[in-house]
Simulated scan of single mutants.
Amino acid sequence: MALLPYAVSFIIAVLLTSLSYFLGSRIFTNGIAMWQAVVIGASVVSLGAIAEALGLPIWLIVLIPFPVGMLLLFLFLHQPLYIWFITYLIILAIYSLIHVIGSYFFEFHSLIPAWKLS
């Protein structure tokens, strides 16, 4: 895989993931700062990309980023557990919508840039 197209895909994936965390946190709470959303997005996408590069099974590639995103959101949000949980569900819904749109219209996998869409 060429480095520049992968880097662009990686940056787009981080930005889209960050956007879902930022918007999702603003719907139900005062939200997290944009820099916090970018930290979460970069962490989640990086872990997924590293897991994919190591050749881990698909279920593990998908599973590994979740606890990190959840923990970082909890730490940054400063809200009770039930509010964090509802906020996380909203974020997942927004992320899923972004992912479906990106996949359908742009043939772009917004979680793991190296994955090819069929």
Rank of each mutant, 00 (worst) to 15 (best):
W84V: 15
M1F: 13
F74T: 13
I50M: 15
H78R: 15
I101P: 03
I32W: 06
L92E: 12
P65T: 01
E107D: 13
V100M: 12
A37Q: 05
P57E: 08
L60F: 14
P80C: 09
G48S: 08
L4M: 13
I86G: 11
Y104D: 09
I50Y: 15
L56A: 07
S43R: 07
I11R: 02
P67W: 00
L97D: 01
T17D: 06
Y95T: 10
S43F: 06
L111W: 07
S96N: 10
G31L: 02
F22D: 06
V100E: 11
L111S: 14
S46F: 08
I91N: 02
M34S: 14
G102E: 02
I112H: 04
I94W: 03
Y21R: 08
M34E: 12
S9P: 01
A42Y: 01
W84P: 08
I83M: 15
Y21Q: 08
N30P: 08
H78A: 12
L117C: 02
A33M: 06
P113G: 04
K116C: 04
L73C: 03
A7S: 11
L56C: 13
A42R: 00
V45M: 05
I32E: 05
M34K: 15
L72K: 00
L72P: 02
L23S: 03
P80Q: 11
F106K: 05
Q36T: 05
V68W: 12
L81W: 14
E52S: 14
A49M: 02
I27W: 04
L63T: 14
S18C: 06
I86H: 00
I58V: 15
L54W: 12
V62K: 03
Y6D: 10
A49C: 11
A2L: 12
Y82I: 10
S20P: 03
A33Y: 13
A49K: 04
V45K: 09
P80L: 05
L89E: 01
L71N: 08
L73F: 05
G41Y: 02
F22L: 11
T29V: 07
P57R: 09
V62L: 06
H99V: 07
F85H: 08
V44I: 12
L97R: 04
T29S: 14
L23T: 04
Y21G: 06
V39G: 10
S18I: 05
I112R: 05
Y95F: 11
G102Q: 02
M1Q: 13
K116M: 10
T87S: 03
S110V: 10
Y6C: 00
G55E: 07
V39P: 06
A114D: 12
L111Q: 12
F10G: 00
I90C: 04
L117V: 09
S103L: 07
Q36I: 01
Y88M: 13
L60Q: 10
F66D: 08
L77G: 01
Y6Q: 09
E52T: 09
S18Q: 08
A42I: 03
I64A: 10
L117E: 02
I94P: 06
G102R: 01
W59E: 07
L63Q: 10
A42W: 00
A51E: 04
S96W: 11
F22M: 07
